[in-house]
């Protein structure tokens, strides 16, 4: 392992330790309600960036994957009373399969045509669930939480820690993809797909792998939502807000490095939580839109780009 790799894993371990410590010490449950959502957005944005950022395939289907993750958990719960980790694990497998299937259908399309196709996927997935009575159909479904597992004293704290672990898995995967041969191939695809293919890059295969990893993480992020709200209905599970947020957070953070979506999700996610408490959740979309416009105009490379520019300026300024 390289020096940087060691630091990454030390950071990841500290992060999880911090999450556990918070869960054991802090009493106010609201912290974990809000924290859960922010961590969930980190996973979603990180997942989105693997296809959308590294390969440049702008995906509007995050909500489809997320919603299918929610309903995978609900199905497993109702049918088999499956425990939380099984729900998440199966959701990841379903998400990977879904990513492969959808990828095969849509990844031959380039640019805007791919993006439009992914919008349709959310609509199809939502329609399917609306017509599936076993998981509650259009009216939705209510669920009871099973007893919490020690050492946690509340279910929501446990969910928070589970999400923290999911964040580490997602970021580690994104980081691995970025530094691997797969990552370089995807970058070539993003820069020029025709040239990539002529250099021997199996462009379709790489895009499929990226789409499967991305889909697995998105579905896995959705699964714990069922227990978080103890209620699910198709309209909120497939809410387009997930698609828009994942994309916006990646773009605002910066798509060229795994840290970008993490920063974007923390910034936007906490802003959204703050606004929801202080004003109303309706204003979130507006703020999201404004920040996206601001960044596209003023800092097209996102926070990463801004920091790099500052860094260079400071570097030049010093003797």
């Amino acid at each position: 392992m390289t020096g940087r790799g060691v630091w990454f894993w030390i950071g990841a371990a500290l992060f999880i330790a911090l999450a556990v410590a918070l869960a054991l010490v802090v009493r106010n449950e609201y912290v974990f309600f809000a924290g859960f959502v922010i961590l969930q957005f980190i996973v979603l944005a990180t997942a989105w960036n693997i296809l959308g950022g590294y390969a440049g395939y702008v995906n509007f289907g995050t909500s489809a994957f997320f919603g299918i993750g929610v309903y995978t958990a609900i199905f497993l719960l109702k049918a088999f009373s499956a425990p939380l980790l099984v729900q998440i694990g199966v959701a990841a497998v379903v998400g990977a399969a879904m990513g492969l299937g959808i990828g095969l259908l849509t990844l031959r399309l380039r640019g805007i045509f791919f993006s439009i196709a992914t919008v349709a996927i959310t609509i199809i997935a939502e329609t399917l669930i609306i017509n599936w009575k076993f998981v509650g159909g259009a009216t939705g479904v209510q669920m009871l939480r099973p007893p919490v597992t020690p050492p946690f004293d509340s279910y929501i704290k446990m969910l928070f820690v589970v999400l923290a672990i999911l964040v580490v898995i997602a970021v580690a995967l994104a980081r691995y993809v970025q530094d691997s041969k797969l990552g370089r191939g995807l970058r070539a695809v993003r820069d020029d797909e025709v040239a990539a293919e002529s250099c021997g890059v199996p462009t379709l295969n790489l895009k499929l792998v990226a789409c499967a990893i991305s889909g697995a993480l998105m579905c896995a992020a959705g699964a714990p939502s069922a227990m978080y709200l103890q209620f699910a209905d198709p309209v909120s599970a497939f809410n387009l807000n997930y698609s828009v947020s994942a994309l916006a957070m990646s773009l605002i953070g910066g798509t060229s490095h795994w840290i970008g979506p993490v920063l974007g999700a923390i910034l936007l996610g906490s802003t959204q939580q703050l606004l929801t408490v202080t004003i109303s959740s309706e204003i979130n979309v507006l703020v999201l839109g404004l920040m996206l416009v601001l960044f596209v105009v003023a800092a097209p490379e996102g926070i990463i780009g801004l920091v790099r520019r500052l860094w260079r300026r400071v570097g030049k300024g010093s003797p």
């Binding site: 041969k181 370089r184 191939g185 970058r187 070539a188 993003r190 820069d191 020029d192 025709v194 040239a195 990539a196 002529s198 250099c199 021997g200 890059v201 199996p202 060229s256």
Partner: peptide
């Protein structure tokens, strides 16, 4: 192997990285 009439570089990569893509994937 071929070159393109209108050059198609991988713009975000250095010249070296452009060639590394071809050796890593093409061979």
């Amino acid at each position: 192997a071929r070159s393109f009439q209108v050059p198609r570089p991988f713009r975000t990569m250095t010249v070296l990285e452009n060639l590394l893509v071809a050796i890593d994937f093409g061979v």
